[in-house]
């Protein structure tokens, strides 16, 4: 059966620095995988290569059996992969609804002009991530970090992904906000969404993933169940410092 995401021998060099060094892994349909490692290990660089924001030096990335290395970011998103960013990137002057609207737009100028925005779907998405009716007309400068992450999730979900890459999804959140985002991820897992999640908050991450991949200096150092990965000696030495 075709894997939603299959990465083989991924190498990315920035001049003399090798950010990802022969990385290979697969994601199965509906599987949720944690991607962990210390700062600078290469986690976000892997995301950027999957999305086409960086082109890999060598190796292949397949989405549902299609080699995507030569595709643009929007083309990859149309194939069903989407990501959030470590630092949320909202459209600063747009309201919550307008931010979600951009994610829902078709990549066709003709359709943008001739078709009406699907306001019901915009509201549904915004409410599904935990916004209240009164938040919908708010602009990002009126939102907390937790709300900005929810907004990022909603806009990502609007692109109709089958695989979601979540980057430091709990960073800067309160306990209550972490709980809210975690519930949302759990809900999407129950709907068979495939996840690759980067987080330094291992306690929050553990219940959300089926397995984990640990990397350091751009190399995979452990892979398997979450418990086995975090108890791995190499992982503890490099990542946890114990």
């Amino acid at each position: 059966m075709t894997k939603p995401l299959s990465i083989k021998n991924l190498v990315k060099n920035f001049g003399g620095l090798t950010a990802t060094d022969d990385i290979s892994f697969d994601l199965n349909e509906g599987q949720s995988t944690g991607l962990i490692g210390p700062n600078g290990a290469g986690k976000t660089t892997i995301f950027s290569q999957i999305m086409g924001e960086y082109r890999q030096t060598s190796g292949t990335i397949e989405l549902y059996g299609t080699e995507i290395s030569k595709l643009s970011t929007p083309a990859r998103i149309r194939l069903g992969v989407s990501r959030t960013y470590q630092v949320p990137r909202p459209f600063a002057e747009f309201t919550v609804l307008e931010n979600v609207r951009v994610g829902l737009m078709p990549d066709s100028i003709w359709k943008m002009i001739t078709e009406s925005p699907n306001v019901d779907r915009e509201i549904e998405l915004a409410l599904s991530v935990g916004f209240s009716e009164s938040d919908l007309r708010r602009t990002p400068d009126e939102l907390s970090m937790g709300d900005l992450r929810k907004l990022e999730m909603a806009r990502t979900m609007a692109t109709n992904p089958r695989i979601m890459l979540l980057d430091e999804v709990f960073a800067g959140l309160t306990v209550g906000e972490i709980d809210q985002i975690a519930k949302l991820i759990q809900k999407m897992r129950s709907e068979n969404m495939t996840f690759l999640i980067v987080s330094h908050d291992l306690k929050a991450l553990e219940p959300l993933v089926d397995d984990a991949i640990a990397i350091n200096y751009g190399k995979v150092i452990a892979q398997g169940s979450f418990a086995s990965v975090i108890s791995d000696k190499a992982v503890r030495t490099s990542y946890l410092g114990t």
Binding site: P74, I77, P90, V102, M105, R155
Partner: peptide, 8 residues
Amino acid sequence: SVKGSGLS
């Protein structure tokens, strides 16, 4: 973010 929303 426009690119990240699937638009060219």
